[in-house]
Design a protein around this nucleic acid. Structure first.
Ligand code: FES
Ligand code: FES
Lengths: 146, 146
DNA sequence: TTATTAAAAGACAAAAAGGTCTTTTGGTAA
DNA sequence: TTACCAAAAGACCTTTTTGTCTTTTAATAA
């Protein structure tokens, strides 16, 4: 569905937010371990997210990653776009230059509604909303991870 | 959505089927040109499809690619599985080891129905059904291709 | 039976994705 | 003010994906 970097970023940010809710600021090693991602790669990804302004960090003792409390929620469509580019769910499944109901590919009729649902999903859900769900124990963050 | 190889295979096979309907057997160069894919890469992909048994070919003058008239339709899920492996639309969007309603990730609730729709789509549609749609001029094969 | 045609086979290579590691920088706390 | 800690930066590497090209094999037609 998503590529590895997006997947790790998503899981990592949800984990960080979850810890922030508990007044904690996890570091790279902790995040990597909890989301079962490669530690160095996780570090690199988190660094990029800080540079992109999605996340904040503190160096030194007691340091780690955290969300700016003043910022609004981060819809995952923004995250996906930043990492994978705007290819998101705008393109034609068949490879036409653009997905256009006026010049539809043979998959369009059935694919367009699905694409719309996907776009709705990633627009509506945010890192924070996902973390909330995990916090309420309704959903799992890392059980049976790949 | 799909990777390049799958995309070219899909478009290529639909084009070939379309030409077969017109009693023609296109060759690699023609297919590549019509679906706007790299010629050598297209040739390699078609060769693989022949080896996989999805397609047939004839060498020499008047040669080219064609579908075995005796064979049943080819659902595109089979094509996708053969090229990309079974990763298809079985996995968890969040990266959990498996998508399981008993241990759902925070995206599951909204993503599962979408996944189901995708699986329905690729199971129901076949190379032949897609070619039919193009044949009836209802849908476009290569207008505005990437 | 030979020339021609077109696919098959497979080596090679560029680009992108995924991942590792070392060094530097900037904080914290004793 | 020193020792330590943890993120930042960036070089480097591996694997996968995407793509190119040459040589060989097989079919057809003259
Ligand atoms: S035109 Fe192909 S999916 Fe819309
Ligand atoms: S468990 Fe994640 S999509 Fe189903």
């Amino acid at each position: 569905m998503f590529n590895k970097e997006t997947e790790y970023a998503l899981r990592g940010l949800v984990y960080i937010k979850l810890q922030n809710l508990k007044e904690r600021r996890p570091g790279t090693l902790e995040v990597a371990k909890e989301i079962e991602a490669p530690p160095f790669f996780t570090a690199k990804i988190l660094q990029r997210l800080v540079r992109s302004g999605f996340l904040r960090s503190l160096k030194g003792k007691g340091g780690g990653f955290f969300f700016d409390p003043g910022k609004p929620d981060l819809p995952i469509i923004n995250l996906i776009s930043a990492i994978e580019g705007d290819r998101s769910f705008s393109g034609c499944s068949f490879g036409l230059k653009q997905c256009d109901s006026d010049n539809p590919c043979p998959l369009h009729e059935k694919y367009a509604p699905i694409k719309e649902a996907l776009n709705k999903l990633i627009t509506e859900e945010s890192v924070q909303s996902l973390a909330e769900k995990v916090y309420k124990k309704e959903f799992s963050l890392n059980e049976f991870l790949k």
